[in-house]
Design a protein around this nucleic acid. Sequence first.
DNA 1: CATGAATGAGTGTTCATTCAT
DNA 2: GATGAATGAACACTCATTCAT
Lengths: 175, 175, 175, 175
Amino acid sequence: MPKLTQNRVERRRRQLLDAAAACFSSKGIHGATVPDISQRAQVSVGTLYRHFGSKERLIIAIAERICRQDALIVERLLAVARPFDQRGALDSIVLERLEDFVSAKEARLRIELWAEAPLHPALRAVLRQGLENIIDKVEEALRAENGQNGTTATDARKVIGLVQGAILYRALGVS
Amino acid sequence: MPKLTQNRVERRRRQLLDAAAACFSSKGIHGATVPDISQRAQVSVGTLYRHFGSKERLIIAIAERICRQDALIVERLLAVARPFDQRGALDSIVLERLEDFVSAKEARLRIELWAEAPLHPALRAVLRQGLENIIDKVEEALRAENGQNGTTATDARKVIGLVQGAILYRALGVS
Amino acid sequence: MPKLTQNRVERRRRQLLDAAAACFSSKGIHGATVPDISQRAQVSVGTLYRHFGSKERLIIAIAERICRQDALIVERLLAVARPFDQRGALDSIVLERLEDFVSAKEARLRIELWAEAPLHPALRAVLRQGLENIIDKVEEALRAENGQNGTTATDARKVIGLVQGAILYRALGVS
Amino acid sequence: MPKLTQNRVERRRRQLLDAAAACFSSKGIHGATVPDISQRAQVSVGTLYRHFGSKERLIIAIAERICRQDALIVERLLAVARPFDQRGALDSIVLERLEDFVSAKEARLRIELWAEAPLHPALRAVLRQGLENIIDKVEEALRAENGQNGTTATDARKVIGLVQGAILYRALGVS
DNA sequence: CATGAATGAGTGTTCATTCAT
DNA sequence: GATGAATGAACACTCATTCAT
């Protein structure tokens, strides 16, 4: 079956990425073996390697996808929270509604990636970029709502810090 | 040679914990091998096993120590921040001063533990306990400062979420 | 499209043999993968398998070609060396002129085949046959030149041993 | 059983080297797996790695040992051949008596190393050095016997080339 | 008590070969 | 006939743990 169509390639990659995300979040990045992942994706290890080349590149591909998803999640959170009628309103929304947007498994996966990042420069670059991206998004939203007065870059970082804290709570199972 | 004095045992444990913390934060929990740690502690692997029994128990001991340290850090942060003269003052202090209390290496180690926790119930219990402990501390402080009016458990979780976000920023190297 | 002409088949085989010889001598028989070879021959792996059936049969085909080439090389060496005006003249010619006939890459390839031979009876048979063939050629030439007096089978083997030694020197880069 | 004595280390290394030499010559360097070797040496793979660090380093250690053995073999051959009463006498001795000094298995192992050398600079360096060493030995012997007249470096290389040819004959099973 | 050599199950990765298209 | 994606057994190597000394 030579000459895989663009379409089939996309499907295979998604299959593999889904399987990897599931395995990484249930067993951890180190606990999930390559055979675990390929089996879950109903594919041979050789096929996994044809598409991603190494476990590390698979991890990076997961991180890129996560970053894209996070951008969407933040947009939806901001939409839900608007108008930010008073200081702190956005903060509360984050704490109260985040779990509608990020499941415990997804929370777990993000923490895995954060832990892995310091050891892998390429991964760190991806995650940092993703983080800066959503910080920008929040900052922009804050400025649009509040006008120029009083909104600083720090406010946006506060909000995202809150999101991260909430993710951690989910992963640790803090009520 | 008489039985090891209580004192010597303590010193050995501290040596090993220091070495483990250093190795875990520089190479990651999975990247740091038991020989790495024992070598750094100037001790044989056998001795490490005599004192901690397994790598996992060593990790848990590290987590317990981290939790104790975090309680102190939070107390110091609160002391610095008081009086919380206006809403959000504590938040700003956290973002601006945290790095005086938690080095990048220490930040890194915490993330490692968070990532490991979901796989190891005993570790998770320790970290959850530690987290609830500092949340309580913050809540108490907020209540003491602000009186009963308007202070909720959520406010404390917000502050801690902020701390965690800041830790992550440090580990990812976001400016 | 009609059946492949005899001609086209020959060209394909030659293409593949050239590619295989190049890959084997630069990466070693074990280091050269089937995709390496087919890519170098500008052909798909499937096509390689259609023509040779297995990597082992490809190796044997290479060996057969090498044996044919070696017969020619020996003939040319003998032609250059004649008349063998004195004992040892042929030896000297071999040592001094061999590199005009066998490049370093070709030397390398022969050694690869020698190393592989003991594991593969079919390959060993081919190489042994080729070796006996050139020994005969040399013996014949010696007899023709020197008359019956003093020429033994051992003399021929000496000469070929010299050739092999020279091949090895080339491969090891001994000046 | 800490602090292996020098003696035990030597024994272990010899055990492993013997096993590796046996496996390499019977299955080829590529066909012999690390478990094959460690099993033959009655040792775990971990122990093999403790002593040699990698399969490649084990191969190099084998090569070093072979070079030492070859120096001895050449000395013995020269002793047997002396006095070199006439031109070519040494050559004949090499062809006729080599098999008393180098078994077929040992011949096979040398060819494996020669084939491997071009891919591994460190190995090549060892073998080249060993080769130059025995060339020097032969040259010296020739000079001592024949006086200064007529003996050239080329003569020594001729003799060694002969040895190598004879080794190849043994490995290919040429009568 | 301390040591560190030994263990071997388990890891990420490769590659000759097949066969659906 | 040609293709190259898919396969999975096999490989070199690691490392938490044990235990003879």
